[in-house]
Design a protein around this nucleic acid. Structure first.
Lengths: 357, 357
DNA sequence: AGGCCAGATGTAAACGTTTGCTGGGAGCGG
DNA sequence: CCGCTCCCAGCAAACGTTTACATCTGGCCT
């Protein structure tokens, strides 16, 4: 039952690790009667080593189970092999996807990703940044908190940093999502369906794109001569609970808006739950557009029309950008890279109650 | 404002910004007319340095923006400050939650978490392990792939490693979830409701708890004199698509099972989608128990009875365990730590069709 | 033969810290 | 005044690599 993995003829077993600690280049050199320099060069594939010697060294290193000490290597050669990834949390699927893609991608480029969590707390953020700086990160991907401290900014000075998903003006480089356009699209979509009375539940968070989302939606409405009434706009902290409560408040009145847009993924979950409990018929009584991951919205009944950010792409882009930044030290477009968000039209949006299409 | 209290000292340039690279201990020592040893001790809070000197050093280091080079520190003092966290992926919410909790927790303990993704591929896993070993990780938390290579095992030998969520026998230490008991509970729950005809869609994955889940469910049924028919059992790779297809196959026949249990979160999503498309009435026609994160199951209509693992707790436990292992080098319980999974009874389970309770 | 170049290896100095050991004052009892 | 012990601070040797430079061996050209 347990995979014994004793297949294969030649027992290429490494020698039993003796108690003399990890094997170093010095050990290999001594055992082979070579100098450390030659061994080092052989292991690094430097061409000046005679091929047969190089092969012998590599073979010996392999069976002795040598693993290079990257700390020493980095220290001496002044190369850096870590990339820091600092986000508020990684339970948020968006950041999880980004972390995943980024870790994979930078490892392919020869780097290693240190994951740090700020918990959206400027204090922890600052501590994490210091810790990352101490680890000599080559580059840094960060989704900053709203209250980023001057100390944090100072820590970042002179390093290759790319802002991710949030803008706080601490680097010329950033990869964000064009939420404004997406929410504008959502407005257009709802207007086309014939909606005239709107509600919005979003976040007030300045550092994230909260304001942009609201603005994109509202501006598009205004462009077409409609407005988003104040008493049907709720700006809240992005938690499931707040979304739930706001939806109850907004939707338990006598007259519902015919279309409701939610501007945060956590809020969306709460709103969706409240809508179901309130028994509001979607989309017959009210259309609903949410923001967030495309997956869970598909499971809801009816499947939710969803504004979703291309997190995989964003992650790859940001990893690419930071890798370029640290390697070539070169010139890259300074202006933020804005990747388009997508409006997935599903079953939760339709014509408003009065109109039979 | 910037008078630098230059009594006895010379160069009073306390300007933070110069292009001469990062500030080192040597620089601070020179600027203060001290030796590197004293500065090092002052910064590390060694008691033998006079308090006023220590304070002066710290103050100066602060305004010069000194950040210690942890690579050098680690190299010299043979301390290690990284913890490796190697999982198949982190898009899976389970691992995301674990990564989050673990990163926070180990950072509180003074470590830093390197996140590595194996993609469930033994090759990548091996490469990642080598990379982590090169980074001189103090400890390692790993959810191994099914086909873990001998080379990977060799890399792990002699290191503090804890298996997480999956068992592959590469350490005496592990933190897993007692899925057997939870699936046993699920069977008991369904039997109590009066069900007699069952279906199961799960994974065949040996390394994950796939077998345990199936076994827990099946054994409990057998204990009560019932059985899980072969033709209503599907064992598949854990993807949403496979779950979707399997559910179609299983449920489009004339006679449905009255209760269906799904043994993986990805499969669960696919099954849930298929069930809705098939128009099976849950729980009137069929009860449904899924496995996975508690959140999205709550959004489904009806809210899904869910077996869910305590990932936060597991993450904290595993972080704690590995921290203990690396610091105290001490004795900890060797046997796997098994944390109980929870059966959240919600609206998707009820009495079988024939019985009006 | 002598000189020269190239190819292969060795020597030793870094990289930025920590830390064992040494040393110089100061305090103090004899 | 000596000798001892504390208390601080400095000297210098590590930690495991990389790498500029030196060295050595042949081979080839003139």
């Amino acid at each position: 039952m347990l995979n014994a993995t004793t297949e294969g003829g030649d027992a290429q077993t490494v020698e039993p690790a003796d108690a003399s600690g990890p094997v170093r280049i010095v050990d290999i050199a001594a055992e082979l009667g070579l100098s450390v320099a030659t061994v080092s060069r052989a292991l690094n594939g430097v061409a000046t080593v005679k091929p047969e010697v190089a092969e012998k060294v590599r073979e010996h290193a392999r069976r002795r189970g040598y693993v290079r000490n990257r700390l020493a290597k980095s220290l001496r050669s002044r190369t850096r092999t870590f990339i820091g990834f600092l986000v508020p949390d990684v339970e948020n699927l968006a950041y999880a996807i980004a972390a995943d893609a980024c870790a994979k991608y930078v490892s392919r480029l020869g780097y290693q990703m240190i994951l740090a969590i700020s918990g959206d707390d400027p204090q922890s953020e600052c501590a994490a940044l210091r810790s990352l700086a101490e680890a000599q990160v080559a580059g840094l991907i960060v989704a900053p908190t709203a209250g980023i401290t001057p100390a944090s900014r100072a820590l970042l000075r002179g390093r290759s940093v790319v802002e991710f998903n949030r803008l706080s003006g601490l680097s010329q480089h950033s990869v964000v999502c064009d939420d404004r356009a997406a929410f504008s699209d959502a407005a257009r979509h709802l207007l086309q369906l014939g909606h005239r009375s709107f509600g919005y539940i979003g976040t007030t968070d300045a550092v994230s794109n909260g304001e942009e989302r609201l603005d994109g939606f509202r501006t598009q409405l205004q462009t077409h001569g409609h407005r988003l009434p104040h008493n049907r706009t709720r700006l809240l902290p992005p938690t499931e609970k707040d979304g739930y409560r706001a939806a109850w408040e907004l939707l338990s009145g006598t007259r519902l808006p015919t279309a409701l847009v939610v501007g945060s993924s956590s809020l969306s979950m709460g709103v969706a739950r409240a809508v179901r409990e309130l028994g509001v018929k979607v989309p017959q009584q009210m259309s609903l557009v949410v923001y967030g991951d495309s997956r869970w919205g598909a499971l809801y009944e009816p499947a939710l029309t969803t504004i979703t950010a291309p997190y995989q792409l964003m992650a790859r882009t940001v990893a690419d950008l930071v890798a370029d930044l640290v390697s070539a030290d070169g010139e890259r477009p300074d202006s933020p890279v804005r990747l388009p968000a997508e409006l997935l039209v599903r079953q939760s949006t339709g014509p408003p109650p009065g109109r039979n299409r």
